[in-house]
Amino acid sequence: MSGLLAAAVACEPARLSDLGTLVQVLWQFLSLSLFSLGGGNTLLAEYHHLAVAQFCWLTNTQFADLYALAEAAPGPSSMLVGLLGLGAGWREGPFWALLCAYGAEAAILLPSTLLMVMACLSWKRLEHSPWRVAFERGLGPITLGILFAVGLKILRTADTNWAGVVVSVLVCVLMLRTRISPLWFMAVAGVLGGLGVINR
C-alpha cells in the first residue's frame, strides 16, 4: 500500500507555466530526434517513460489509447509525438495544448529530417565504400532489437487482463505464420473491444 502511495506522489504532474511546459516539451523531443533509428516507433519506450513515468503528462491508459489512435490513423508513426505534446500542454488550456502538439511534432521531425537530407546527399558517393556496407549491415539487427523491445513495451502497457494477452499472442503467431492482412486483426480486435471481451 505504501508503495502505491509513493508511486502516486512521485507521479504528480509538474506544475509549470504555459511557456515552461512548451520549452520542456520542445527540449525533450529535440533531444530524442536524432535517435529514431528505423522510424519513430523505435523511441516508443522512451516516449512512454517521459510522458507517463517522468513528467506524468498522461496515464498509462491514455498513452496506450493515443498510441492506438496514432497507429490506426493514416500517416507516419511519429504523429504520436504530436498527441503526447497535446497531452503535456492540456492542463494549461487548448491553446497551449495545440502549441505543444505542433512544437513536439516539429521538434521530433526537423533535426532527423535535416540529418537524413545531408546523409542522402553524400550517401551515393560512398556507394562502394566498405564503411557504408558495414554501417547498413550493423543497423539491421539493432533496429530489429529495438522494435522487439517496443513490441514488448506495448504488450505490457496495453494488456492488463488475460484475454488481452491471449489475443495479442494469437495475433503475433498468426501474423508470423500466415499472410492474413493486419487490417483483419484490427477489425476483430475492435469488435472484441466493442463487445467488452477485451478491455483495460
Rank of each mutant, 00 (worst) to 15 (best):
1 M>C: 05
3 G>N: 07
3 G>V: 03
5 L>M: 06
6 A>S: 12
6 A>D: 15
7 A>C: 03
7 A>R: 07
8 A>M: 01
8 A>I: 02
9 V>A: 14
9 V>H: 07
10 A>N: 11
10 A>W: 04
12 E>C: 03
13 P>C: 06
16 L>D: 08
16 L>G: 07
18 D>W: 02
20 G>C: 07
20 G>P: 15
22 L>P: 15
22 L>E: 13
24 Q>F: 08
25 V>I: 04
25 V>Q: 01
29 F>P: 06
30 L>G: 00
32 L>S: 10
33 S>Q: 03
33 S>K: 03
33 S>D: 13
34 L>V: 10
35 F>Q: 05
36 S>Q: 12
38 G>V: 12
39 G>D: 13
40 G>L: 05
41 N>Q: 07
41 N>F: 02
41 N>W: 00
42 T>N: 08
44 L>K: 04
44 L>W: 00
46 E>F: 00
46 E>D: 11
50 L>W: 05
51 A>R: 00
51 A>E: 04
52 V>Y: 00
53 A>P: 00
53 A>I: 01
54 Q>L: 03
55 F>M: 08
57 W>M: 05
58 L>Y: 00
61 T>M: 06
61 T>H: 02
62 Q>R: 13
62 Q>V: 03
62 Q>T: 07
63 F>K: 01
64 A>D: 02
67 Y>M: 03
70 A>S: 14
70 A>D: 02
74 P>Q: 12
76 P>Q: 12
76 P>A: 07
79 M>Y: 00
81 V>C: 01
83 L>D: 02
83 L>T: 04
87 G>T: 08
90 W>A: 10
93 G>Y: 09
94 P>H: 02
95 F>S: 09
98 L>G: 08
99 L>I: 14
99 L>A: 11
99 L>R: 01
100 C>Y: 01
100 C>L: 00
101 A>V: 08
102 Y>K: 04
103 G>V: 11
104 A>T: 05
107 A>W: 02
111 P>D: 12
113 T>D: 08
114 L>C: 09
114 L>I: 08
115 L>K: 04
115 L>E: 11
115 L>S: 14
117 V>C: 10
119 A>M: 09
120 C>T: 02
120 C>Q: 10
121 L>N: 03
121 L>G: 13
121 L>T: 07
122 S>N: 06
124 K>V: 11
126 L>Q: 11
128 H>Q: 06
129 S>T: 06
129 S>N: 07
133 V>M: 13
133 V>F: 13
133 V>E: 09
135 F>S: 07
136 E>A: 04
141 P>R: 08
142 I>V: 15
142 I>A: 10
143 T>L: 14
143 T>C: 13
144 L>C: 14
146 I>S: 00
147 L>E: 01
148 F>E: 01
151 G>N: 02
154 I>N: 05
156 R>E: 00
159 D>N: 13
161 N>R: 15
161 N>K: 13
162 W>R: 15
163 A>W: 14
166 V>A: 15
168 S>L: 02
169 V>T: 13
170 L>Q: 06
170 L>K: 13
170 L>R: 12
174 L>V: 04
175 M>G: 06
177 R>I: 03
178 T>W: 10
181 S>I: 09
183 L>D: 09
187 A>S: 14
187 A>E: 10
191 V>D: 11
192 L>I: 08
197 V>L: 14
199 N>H: 10
199 N>V: 05
200 R>W: 00
